[in-house]
């Protein structure tokens, strides 16, 4: 191989590597990113059972039920629609009725959302941003003036 050919092969190799990495990145974005929905969005969006999504909204009042062991059932609502969620594990410290919450998981066969993680707002100053935006868009929640 001449020097030119060598250099060319190095460049081609590098480009192929970058191309593969780019392809992989966008494939992974398509496959592994989970979309965020509010309960009312689910009527229009087609979400397959088993597809990972993030479901956000408010914890509906009076729906928190402690089952056997550490399993908890509650409903997430955006005041228009609500979705039943079950979760096994320790709820975050800030999980309360009528507070913003984001759950991540997928729909089980019975139409119940099985969450494997539950996030509540981090401190009393804000709601999860997605939930706040979603509720604002639905005209449910107004930003408090104090903060």
């Amino acid at each position: 191989m001449t020097r030119k050919q060598k250099r060319l092969s190095v460049i081609v190799g590098g480009l192929a590597f970058l191309g593969a990495a780019t392809g992989l990145t966008f494939y992974a974005l398509g496959q592994k990113a989970s979309y965020f929905y509010m309960p009312a969005d689910l009527t229009t969006a087609s979400v397959q059972p088993g597809q990972r999504i993030r479901l956000g909204g408010l914890v509906e009042k009076g729906t928190i039920q402690r089952g056997q062991g550490a399993t908890v059932a509650f409903s997430v609502t955006d005041t228009h629609k609500s979705v039943k969620v079950t979760y096994t594990g320790i709820l975050p410290d800030l999980f309360r009725e009528e507070q913003g919450v984001i759950t991540e998981g997928s729909f089980g066969p019975g139409g119940v959302f099985v969450a494997d993680s539950v996030l509540a707002k981090h401190d009393e100053r804000y709601m999860p941003k997605e939930v706040a935006d979603g509720l604002k868009a639905k005209g449910v929640w107004q930003e408090s003036k104090s903060e």
Partner: peptide, 24 residues
């Protein structure tokens, strides 16, 4: 940055977590 860009452009909210990074 992709979730931020996507939300700014289309309004879709996605979260990119461990599964994405495990794969890439």
């Amino acid at each position: 940055l992709y979730p931020l860009a996507l939300e700014a452009l289309t309004g879709d909210k996605i979260s990119v977590g461990a599964p994405f990074f495990d794969l890439t």
